[in-house]
């Protein structure tokens, strides 16, 4: 199914194919508290080939032709289970109260007892403020902000991940923003949440330092762990580990990332 058809299936025109006139079950009931389906699935992994992650003569397993597709995060269906449904209702109601469109939540994933909201970066700060201030949500603590790089050829490879904690209701959720970074001259931009959660200050600086994610509106976005004049972003997947061959007692030891790997 092409992308166009998919969209068509989402928003069928009255009387056209796939519309309610043709479908047996209901499917066009108003779904107020439902996130919009993503235009593309969130890819969270790279395609793998062979057994040892190397090409050429390194792979002696005979499985060089083996190809594994990239993992993409499955969107969750209602009911999510546990406190997630109650929370999601509250969350979407609060979004509506604050004039934030429900489409700003692009996808919801429930995995291993944790709920993840993939959100639109334009509304990130407003969503965070709603989560912090709404009496039914009360996410007082931003536990962690981290960057994740899913690999060079993955679409939307950089993710900015926020872990929020509600001390009042003892809940944890995760917000995630996916970012493109194809063009090195045009770094990925995300609005900074420092104005809502001051604790994100250093954590956003760390994510900038390691992944080159530019947090717009951050009071002082500079490198924090690496030296100020460092080139490149060390935790990106295309940045080599060490990258310098080390000589030990006359023998050259190749950098770890060029050794044979098993995944």
């Amino acid at each position: 199914m092409s992308e166009n058809d998919e969209r068509h299936a989402e928003n069928p025109e009255p009387g056209a194919g796939q519309s309610s006139a043709e479908r047996a079950e209901g499917g066009l009931e108003p779904t107020s508290a439902e996130p919009a389906r993503p235009a593309e699935p969130v890819v969270a992994g790279r395609q793998r080939k062979g057994m040892f992650g190397v090409s050429g003569t390194g792979d002696t397993s005979g499985y060089g032709g083996l190809r594994l597709p990239a993992y993409s995060v499955p969107p969750a269906e209602r009911p999510y289970g546990g406190w997630f449904d109650e929370f999601a209702d509250e969350f979407y109601a609060a979004l509506a109260d604050n004039g934030i469109p429900a489409e700003s939540v692009q996808q919801v994933t429930v995995d291993r007892g944790e709920i993840t909201f993939y959100v639109d970066r334009d509304h990130l700060v407003a969503i965070c403020r709603t989560l912090r201030d709404d009496a039914g949500l009360r996410f007082e603590l931003c536990s962690s902000v981290s960057g994740v790089d899913y690999g060079v050829d993955v679409p939307q490879r950089l993710h900015s991940v926020y872990h929020l904690t509600s001390m009042t209701y003892r809940r944890r959720i995760r917000l995630e923003v996916t970012l493109d970074c194809d063009n090195p001259d045009d770094p990925p931009h995300v609005p900074s949440i420092v104005e809502v959660y001051p604790t994100a200050d250093w954590q956003e600086r760390e994510a900038y330092d390691m992944f080159g994610i530019v947090y717009d509106g951050h009071p002082a976005l500079t490198r924090i762990l690496m030296p100020d004049d460092w080139d490149g972003f060390p935790q990106r997947k295309d940045y080599p580990l060490g990258g310098i061959p080390v000589e030990y007692k006359g023998a050259e030891i190749p950098p770890p990332d060029t050794r044979r790997s098993y995944s």
Partner: peptide, 19 residues
């Protein structure tokens, strides 16, 4: 002390982030 781990299905972590 929080650990945000991401796996891509391999035998090594895709990301280890420590809060």
């Amino acid at each position: 002390l929080g650990f945000h781990l991401v796996s891509d299905g391999g035998t090594r972590p895709l990301r280890v982030h420590v809060r």
